[in-house]
Nucleic acid binder design. Structure first.
Lengths: 224, 224
DNA sequence: AAAATTATTTAGGATAGACTAAATAATTGT
DNA sequence: ACAATTATTTAGTCTATCCTAAATAATTTT
């Protein structure tokens, strides 16, 4: 019984993947929040995914959900689609990074493997999407992500912005105006670790910028 | 009550549009065949579309269906999406005209107006898709289609191939091998009108080709 | 024009995936 | 450790869209 993966199921798997990246099972409520549906509905779907053949998730009451191998591969497939599409729309249709998310959210479920391959080939098999997130390879291996939150950077340390974890258009536009885009070089001038506030020198910019946790926890860097 | 148009409803409207292009209402069975579902299911959906506010189709029992103005605009929107996407995939990802149909069939339902506009702009607002079908304009006007079936050409008449009405990959490949692609110049050498068989000179090709109705009724031409 | 055939509609169900309200389990605060 | 709070699950519904079987209407044949 080769189960057809509906849009809805693909979304569940994608979000479970993201919620379990820290190694912890995903909770019903967290999933419900992300999916924008009621917790009770999530429980129902989870039970179905856990008892399907083959099972896509592994689940024990009140213990949260994790992906099985099958489920993980399906999730990576969707994530690969999403990130390739974002990169493609930005590169070929002049979208900006803050505009592509919703479009990719819909397209990710309907492109064929053939189209996926053509998009990837047309762009030379990119490793990152416009937000800096790694794009799983065609054989569904997620590239190692060596980035760390800006808030984790030590004093006087230099690094390069490698990823921004947000789909909030306003925030993304703001970051752009600060020069905090993928590839930007930064150096910490002052850090207040407790509340994750920092003063930062952005290469190519005269004035340092002062950032709060809403930003320092969402902008990721790699030490060069 | 702004009804959300589901994929399913968009498909109904698109097929009703195509079936009613000859001015005749679409029958339940014809629609069912095209949609690949049971006639009874079509009746149910039609009744719903006819009684929605605003109505998308106009319907009287046993008399078939036609589109209302609202319905026609919705159908043209889907058709515009479909044809723009076909043109786009062919032009930017090297698809051939016989491969894009299924892909467009899925994408047509999920692209935003914004993406539609960007695709159209990137291609200079094309008037025809790769099959030669007219692409409705952004304000949903279908360009006049002056083409006629190849089988309707008179003896010794010259014309240009302007459209091919088929999604059959094998047929499309065959036509390609005969040189019968959009833009090809042809001249009728011999016609057997009764059974729609004809012998045709294709410009740039040494030997004439002999064609039966499976082809002469699906290849359309414009007299230059 | 009656009979036979074909097309269409009605009636009754199924499934997917959401919801709410109520019940239960787990966690947190004191 | 017990009470209060929060998270999760169960039970029962709802909507969209499909299905099959049976009934009816339209069309075609004779």
């Amino acid at each position: 019984m080769t189960e057809h993966l509906t849009n809805s199921i693909q979304d569940y798997l994608k979000h479970i993947y993201e919620l379990t990246e820290d190694g912890q099972p995903a909770t019903t409520t967290a999933l419900a929040t992300r999916l924008g549906i009621a917790p009770a509905s999530v429980t129902g779907m989870i039970q179905k995914l856990a008892s399907s053949e083959p099972a896509l998730v592994s689940y024990r009451k009140h213990q949260g959900v994790t992906l099985t191998d099958k489920g993980r591969r399906a999730a990576l497939e969707v994530i690969r689609h999403h990130r390739l599409i974002e990169a493609w729309l930005v590169q070929t249709l002049g979208y900006s990074w803050d505009e592509v998310h919703n479009e990719a959210e819909k397209l990710e479920h309907v492109i064929s493997e053939e189209l996926e391959a053509r998009i990837a080939a047309a762009m030379g098999n990119p490793l990152r999407d416009p937000h800096g997130d790694p794009i799983p390879s065609a054989d569904l291996v997620m590239p190692e992500d060596k980035s760390m939150a800006l808030s984790g950077l030590a004093l006087k340390q230099e690094a390069m912005v490698s990823k921004v974890e947000s789909q909030d258009t306003d925030l993304l536009k703001h970051l752009e105006s600060l020069g905090l885009v993928i590839g930007a070089r930064v150096k910490t001038l002052e850090v207040s670790r407790y509340d994750q506030v920092m003063r930062l020198q952005v290469r190519g910019r005269n004035e340092p910028v002062v950032l709060g946790p809403a930003i320092t926890n969402r902008v990721f860097v790699e030490i060069k």
